[in-house]
Design a protein around this nucleic acid. Structure first.
Lengths: 243, 243
DNA sequence: CTGATGCTTCGGCCGGTGCCGAAGCATCAG
DNA sequence: CTGATGCTTCGGCACCGGCCGAAGCATCAG
């Protein structure tokens, strides 16, 4: 009567999902979406739990293969295991039905606005800026959405001018992928192409990372460059005054 | 200190994952991967739980938007909500680290072999047959894996001959996507193209669905047609005698 | 060496959640 | 109408798993 094969898959699915099903572990993973390595204590403080609790969670995340760790002296640095894991986390977040959340405080509002304008999402750009770049690349004919998202020949050429080594990407990773933007409710560019653009934008000083947050700052250089490369109007490159 | 925005995303992720984190609900979802509608009682028997328990689980799955339901008389038919949900379920299953499972009984072994040879995976073909079709399409130049998986112009033409209405697909769904085969440990064709091929194979009598299982039977017509269309050798189209 | 810091282990508490059976309602066949 | 079937609600039980604080070990600075 029982279908053993399917039972195995069901049990597998459940055990995998149960790792993600805890609010504290989920907070860890979302924090790690910035692609950087965090220490155990940082994550514990970020999630508001005791160090001992964080230890147990990290133990479980590591055993499930979702994170990797590096020991350095008395520090334990952890990262997401790979881009596929980041994709999984993202897809679970965006699978949830949308609910509008009221903003709770002024400083939270400021922080939210900074994040909404420009941030990194694992390894690519997100927020208003991420969507604007994606739109501009589409308008320039670098991307096509005809049969799903794809890079055009012109687009491949442009990516090559940014990073001759970086395109086309190696196998094992989606070259291009839409990622649903949680603030804009629209898709921005992810996958290897999104990572390439983001890497270049940071290296070339178009945007600057800020400490302790995924928000990034668009520099004057960046504004100019985006206008040159993609014809992006200055008007869309200013954070909006109100949420 | 707390990052409210990220907390929201973490909580969202956790609540979504907790829906998938139960073995019984996971068994339901894996069963529903066959793309068909099941009744509540069928799912309860399949998973080995009381009807009242199944009711509670279905309630929760529906509230999370993972399944949709149709009431017909005293029956409650449920399906996966959409292809994106199927993708999510698949990606969670394949995110788990591989573990080899010993086969438990002779009938289980037979069933497993049938599933391993040819089955549907939500809406496309999987198993040895699914991988063989994918390989043959690649050899024929219908698919390219150069920069990730894509359909070539020749491939688009072939798909059009199968179903003039079906290609190119509408927006909102990936046209083509690799899906990791859990028996072959290699990727087979999924996405809209995979669904088109599978739909045609069933409609044209190449393969026949079996009741109460996701395994499908390759017909004589199918063997002939696959040889004609894709040059698939007969030798790969026989279920292997041993696992 | 000494104290501070980062991380870990252990014991115990507690809330959430999955399970069942009994009872009840709606539908359908006869 | 009557009984069978599909599904639902409710009450109660049991267990899993997350949380903390205390104590302990390793590393590092002074």
């Amino acid at each position: 009567m029982n279908d053993r094969v399917d039972d195995e898959r069901g049990a597998t699915l459940a055990s995998m999902a149960s790792v993600l099903a805890d609010a504290t572990r989920a907070t860890f993973l979302v924090a790690l979406l910035d692609g950087r390595a965090w220490t155990a204590t940082e994550l514990a403080r970020h999630a508001g739990v005791a160090p001992s609790t964080a230890t147990a969670h990290l133990h479980r995340l590591r055993n499930s293969g979702l994170i990797t760790e590096v020991r350095q002296g008395r520090h334990r640095y952890v990262r997401l295991a790979d881009p596929a894991t980041a994709d999984l986390v993202e897809s679970l977040v965006s699978a949830a039905p949308d609910v509008a959340e009221p903003v709770r405080s002024l400083s939270a509002s400021t922080r939210r606005r900074a994040l909404a304008f420009a941030r990194t999402c694992y390894d690519h750009l997100a927020g208003t800026l991420g969507v604007a770049v994606t739109d501009a690349m589409t308008a320039r004919g670098f991307l096509t959405w005809e049969n799903g998202l794809a890079v055009t020949d012109d687009g491949a050429h442009w990516l090559t001018t940014l990073d001759p080594q970086g395109w086309p990407p190696g196998r094992g990773r989606a070259p291009v992928r839409p990622c649903l933007d949680w603030t804009e409710r629209r898709s921005h560019l992810a996958g290897a192409a999104g990572a390439l653009v983001c890497r270049y934008a940071i290296d070339a000083g178009w945007v600057a990372r800020r400490p302790r947050t995924r928000a990034v700052t668009l520099t004057a250089t960046g504004r100019h460059a985006l206008r040159e490369h993609l014809g992006l109007a200055e008007s869309v490159l200013r954070p909006k005054a109100s949420a």
